[in-house]
């Protein structure tokens, strides 16, 4: 049966051929693995003062740039290659690329985030140049499913669906506050195990006396938000000049400025496209908080409030300029 690219034919010959190629590739891989092991062994014996991590990073770069060079060499050979050999050559290059990518992935355990990002960019560029070369040398085949559209899984809809949901639908979440100005807003334990949405609030104080499963927050300014323990994540976007006092499993903060966070987060807090945000430990108490902690399943002993990942700042050796810790004397108490 034809595959998506219509290229699979089953003949005995092809099978033998593929057995042969398989062996050939396996041998090649083995050889490379042996070389790599010998190399690693040699490095081990060289015993230097460099730490293991640096050592790993170094040999990563050696291998990465070697393989990248090999690949670029192959690519540059394409120009002078016979037309009918091009498809095979590009298939080969694409396999090389995938192996390089896998090698990078397997190295993420020890690669510092900054190096990882650089490497990702290198991979991107490499992929682009492969693609460009391929487009230049091999005219594109148009891809399309046969008109039968066999197997397309979707129920028939009686009428043409509206292209997007209506605005009211979009904001129809059970527990939410939106478009308020200068108010004190409170929710009680009816929000337990539910999801809460806060959007378009200005100069409000919001108190969530309960343990929601998830919280989505968008476009707040000059607000103070206090929340009991959230069993899942709190997702914050586009806030300005606010104070958040929240406990949760994950905290994700995007495009937010001039805001203070007093947090208890059991896995990790991250920021992206933020500036002038600062962090202190969670310190809100209310009557049922112990009960709510228990219901939420959050571990009170684990709190990484002072260890924030900035997705726009991956250099390991320098602190992100986008966030800081709130000095102890400046921390506020909340009731």
């Amino acid at each position: 049966m034809a595959n998506a690219d219509g290229a699979v034919f089953v003949t005995k010959e092809n099978i033998c051929d593929s057995e042969f190629t398989k062996q050939f590739i396996a041998d090649k891989l083995q050889k490379r693995e042996d070389e790599r092991l010998a190399h690693v062994q040699k490095r081990k014996e060289e015993k230097s003062a460099v730490s293991a991590a640096q050592e790993n990073t170094k040999s990563f770069y050696e291998q990465f740039s070697k393989e990248k060079n090999d690949l670029e060499n192959e690519l540059s050979l394409c120009d002078s290659l016979d037309k009918n050999k091009l498809v095979d050559k590009f298939d080969e290059i694409s396999v090389m690329y995938q192996k390089l990518q896998r090698f990078v992935t397997e190295s993420t355990m020890f690669l510092p985030a900054y190096d990882l990002q650089q490497t990702q960019e290198n991979l991107s560029k490499l992929q682009t140049s492969i693609q460009e070369k391929r487009n230049e040398l091999i005219p594109k085949k148009k891809f399309a499913f046969k008109s039968k559209k066999k197997g397309t899984v979707s129920e028939k809809v009686e009428e043409k669906p509206k292209p997007v949901l209506e605005d009211e639908d979009v904001l129809l979440a059970d527990c939410k506050f939106s478009d308020r100005n200068g108010e004190q807003l409170v929710m009680d334990s009816t929000i337990n195990k539910k999801d809460v949405a806060l959007t378009c609030l200005d100069s409000c104080i919001v108190k969530l006396h309960g343990t929601p499963s998830a919280v989505h927050i968008n476009k707040l300014s000059n607000c103070t938000i206090l929340s009991g323990p959230v069993s899942g994540s709190i997702f914050i976007r586009e806030c300005k000049n606010c104070t958040f006092v929240v406990a949760c499993q994950q905290l994700r903060i995007h495009t937010t400025t001039d805001t203070k966070f007093y947090i208890h987060v059991t896995s990790r807090a991250i920021i992206e496209d933020c500036s002038t945000v600062s962090f202190g430990p969670y310190n809100w108490t209310y009557d049922d908080i112990e009960k709510h902690y228990e219901m939420s399943g959050l571990d009170k002993r684990r709190n990484s409030w002072d260890d924030i990942d900035d997705f726009n700042w991956l250099a390991a050796d320098k602190h992100s300029p986008n966030w800081s810790l709130i000095p102890e004397d400046d921390r506020k108490k909340f009731t």
């Binding site: 896998r102 992935t105 993420t108 985030a113 990882l116 990702q120 499993q249 994950q250 994700r252 059991t266 896995s267 990790r268 991250i270 399943g297 571990d299 990942d309 997705f311 991956l314």
Partner: peptide, 12 residues
């Protein structure tokens, strides 16, 4: 699944 952090990069 309790200890999952936001993914900085990728998992395979």
């Amino acid at each position: 699944i309790d200890k999952i952090s936001p993914t900085l990069g990728f998992n395979i």
